[in-house]
């Protein structure tokens, strides 16, 4: 480009991006027609820019998944522990890893939160599939003995549990059972609505301080999983995502209330 031509790289880029004012655009346009080689290059840049835009447009046209809705993220963020607590927990785990040798540490590092959550989801979905199909013995201890059921599962999982009330969502408690999960135990609570649709809540220790809601689509049912205070939760059912999220939020809120009984009421 010669010095007496006041057209520079910024003009050419803005021309390709369609960001020039009409006067400048006309000027650059004329310049390009006088320099056909450059004109050809710029035309090609415009063409490939359009192709790239067209090729990726489908992604922006998709509806926003529920898990990326700000309201859903905000619910979770409210619940998460303070950052320094997580750091302290990580430091403690690291120290324990040191004590237990590098194997323990490497294993911890190799299993990300997402992987552990997926494992909880996979266990929950497979337990859901097996036991919701059961007509004779869907549960080990029926809801008629709810107090006993809750006490028993709390003792076996070494964590105070509570069977959430999902009647607002149309589901009532059928009962629950104890399940093996890795080296520990897991609990499954089963609910049913008036139409006979079943929903399960799966709980087990997972050592996570707190994570966001994650949606997992299984073959027959879908699940929302999350962690809170070292406990992993998964709610599985054959309902749509919005309805399932609504149920998951209700379970989450109720578990918070039961864990903080001493919190003074807002004044």
């Amino acid at each position: 480009m010669s010095v007496d031509q006041p057209i520079g790289e910024d003009d050419l880029n803005a021309f390709v991006d369609g960001r020039l004012g009409p006067e400048r655009h006309a000027l650059v346009s004329r310049f390009l027609s006088e320099n056909p080689q450059l004109g050809e290059r710029v035309a090609a840049d415009i063409a490939v820019r359009n192709t790239l835009r067209d090729s990726l447009q489908f992604k922006a046209a998709e509806p926003i998944p529920a898990r990326l809705r700000i309201a859903n993220l905000a619910v979770e963020r409210h619940a998460s522990r303070p950052h320094w607590l997580r750091v302290a927990a990580a430091a403690l785990l690291f120290a324990l890893g040191g004590l237990g040798g590098w194997f323990a540490h490497a294993r911890f590092a190799a299993t990300s939160v997402a992987q552990r959550e997926t494992r909880v989801a996979a266990e929950a979905l497979s337990a859901h599939r097996v036991f919701t199909a059961e007509t004779v013995h869907p549960v080990e201890v029926a809801a008629a003995q709810e107090a006993h059921l809750v006490q028993w599962l709390s003792r076996r999982l070494n964590h105070p549990l509570k069977a959430p009330d999902l009647s607002a969502q149309g589901f009532h408690l059928m009962g629950g059972r104890l399940l093996p999960a890795g080296s520990g135990a897991a609990a499954q609570l089963m609910y049913q609505d008036d139409g006979g649709a079943r929903l399960t809540l799966y709980l087990r220790a997972d050592g996570e301080a707190g994570t966001a809601f994650r949606f997992v689509q299984g073959q027959n049912a879908s699940a929302f999983t999350w962690s809170e205070d070292g406990f992993g939760y998964a709610i599985a059912a054959q309902v749509d995502r919005t309805q399932l999220l609504n149920i998951a939020e209700s379970v989450y809120q109720q578990s918070k209330v039961s864990e903080e009984p001493k919190k003074p009421p807002p004044t």
């Binding site: 809705r69 700000i70 905000a74």
Partner: peptide
Amino acid sequence: MDEIAAILEPHIPGLRRYAW
């Protein structure tokens, strides 16, 4: 929170496209 959502959500389709 609704105000934050109103500011952030219009950008989610673009963010998903860039990430993808």
